[in-house]
């Protein structure tokens, strides 16, 4: 074992590749498809993105270490594919990049939590569509951290690796994303008459 070179030790046989795909990769297809859909808002695009991700996973399988977090690895590929191959040609109007968004939101009050008049009982009757819209109208970078953390249950360090950003940035981006989401939910609550119009 020790004499084997690094590359040789890592090499997967065809049978092992199939096994890794069946046991570690394909079980995440549901999460992957929904992540892709929430990024693109288009079923065909989401399908393409997922397929693309799995093909890349196959091509670059040597860089996947068995026993590590396959889901995080796949999500990272998907997110990179979305940014590199997809965002460019997507119908979504081009977004400012991370840095700009970050500094924009750093500058203002958005960082401060909006302590709203939103109340717990106002959330009870909220419809799935409304909650979904509240999430979907967030800028893609903010939407992404909410999906990763609140829907997919990734830890901060996993998110940092998926998004290629420091943990501190994960935390601040999440905080801002949640503030913005709260604000969106508040708008729905308001139209339902749950919060007093001020």
């Amino acid at each position: 074992m020790n004499q084997m070179s690094e590359t040789k030790r890592k090499r997967y046989s065809e049978a092992e590749k199939t096994k890794v795909f069946d046991i570690e990769f394909y079980p995440h297809i549901d999460s992957m498809y929904n992540f892709a859909y929430r990024l693109t808002f288009d079923e065909d695009d989401a399908k393409d993105l997922v397929q693309d991700t799995y093909l890349k996973a196959f091509r670059f399988i040597e860089s996947f270490q068995k026993g590590t977090n396959a889901k995080a690895w796949l999500f990272r590929i998907l997110k990179n594919s979305f940014i590199n191959d997809f965002r460019k040609k997507s119908k979504e109007p081009s977004k400012v990049d991370y840095q700009e968004v970050e500094s924009y939101y750093n500058s203002g009050d958005v960082d401060k939590t909006i302590t709203t008049d939103l109340r717990v009982d106002s959330l009870k009757d909220m419809m799935g569509d409304e909650v979904t819209n509240a999430l979907n109208t967030l800028d893609v970078d903010f939407r992404t951290v909410i999906i990763l953390c609140d829907l997919e249950g990734f830890k901060y360090d996993e998110m940092a690796r998926i998004l290629d950003i420091p943990i501190g940035t994960v935390r601040s981006r999440l905080h801002r994303a949640r503030n913005l989401l709260r604000e969106n939910l508040r708008v729905y609550a308001k139209t339902m008459g749950y919060v007093k119009k001020s």
Partner: peptide
Amino acid sequence: LIKSKIENKPV
């Protein structure tokens, strides 16, 4: 709310 109301699309 987020966990329960946001529905997943079937693959």
